[in-house]
Simulated scan of single mutants.
Amino acid sequence: MMSIIRPEKTDIHTIFEIFQECRFDLDAQGIKQWDDIYPNKEVIEEDIQNQSIFILKHDEEIAGVVSYDEMEIEEYKSVDWKHKDGRNIVIHRLSIRPKYQGQGIAKKLIQFVHGKSRQELYTSVRLDVYSDNQRAIDFYKKLGYELRGEVWFPRRSLPFYCMEKNLSEKIR
């Protein structure tokens, strides 16, 4: 059985473990998206405090995590977003425990974000994805996200692609 809920403070350690498992999994593929500085437990604590994080539980185990809110980072100002009018939501982190990858959990979490955002009358969903993570790029494109530009972050050798999805489109 699967459920998507807000995590408790007691879940911080487990969520951090998932981030670390994903980081090591990406590293093994040669993708240097995350490091030992980001994401960290403070980011998770802040997400819980701001109520901007959700977990997907599969048979009582946390299998995936997504955090999103309205906060756009400074780097996003240089991006030519398509949906400039209206309210936009930003996905900051999506992470699936490696043993659950390929089971549709990422799609369920993204569809959850789309559904909640539509209910709350947001116009679009924005995010950035590491340009060396082709699997993630393909995943978002399949869900209807369009490439809108790129941004650079410290300690990364490649840019992140900024992508956007119009929420008036049908959920894929």
Rank of each mutant, 00 (worst) to 15 (best):
P98E: 07
Q33D: 12
K99H: 00
C22A: 15
F153A: 05
E164V: 01
F54Y: 12
H58G: 03
Q111S: 07
L147H: 12
E42K: 09
L147A: 01
I4M: 09
G64M: 07
P154M: 13
K57V: 01
Q119A: 05
S67G: 05
E169P: 05
R172T: 12
M2A: 04
V129I: 09
V65M: 10
D25S: 08
K77T: 15
L167F: 04
Q49H: 02
D27I: 08
R118F: 05
I96H: 04
D85V: 10
Q33Y: 14
F160L: 10
D27F: 15
I37Y: 15
L167T: 02
D80T: 10
A63F: 04
V129E: 10
A28G: 10
E120P: 04
I171H: 12
E75W: 07
S95E: 10
M1A: 08
N50G: 01
N50W: 00
D128L: 07
V129Y: 08
S117H: 06
E74P: 08
S124H: 04
D59R: 07
K141N: 09
I137N: 07
K116R: 14
L127Q: 12
F139N: 01
D27T: 08
Y38F: 14
I31C: 04
E164L: 01
Y76M: 11
S52I: 04
D132I: 03
H13T: 01
G144E: 10
E70N: 11
E70K: 11
G149H: 13
E72Y: 13
E72M: 15
K107N: 05
S78V: 15
K141F: 13
F160N: 09
L127S: 10
L121R: 10
Y68K: 03
F19V: 12
H83K: 06
F153N: 05
I89M: 09
Q29S: 01
P7T: 02
I15W: 03
Q119L: 12
R97S: 05
Y140D: 01
L94D: 05
N50M: 01
E164W: 06
E8C: 00
R97C: 00
E61P: 00
E169D: 14
I31N: 07
E169I: 06
Q49E: 09
E60D: 12
K107A: 05
L121G: 04
K57P: 03
E70Q: 12
P39V: 05
I91H: 02
Q103P: 02
E60F: 11
A106W: 08
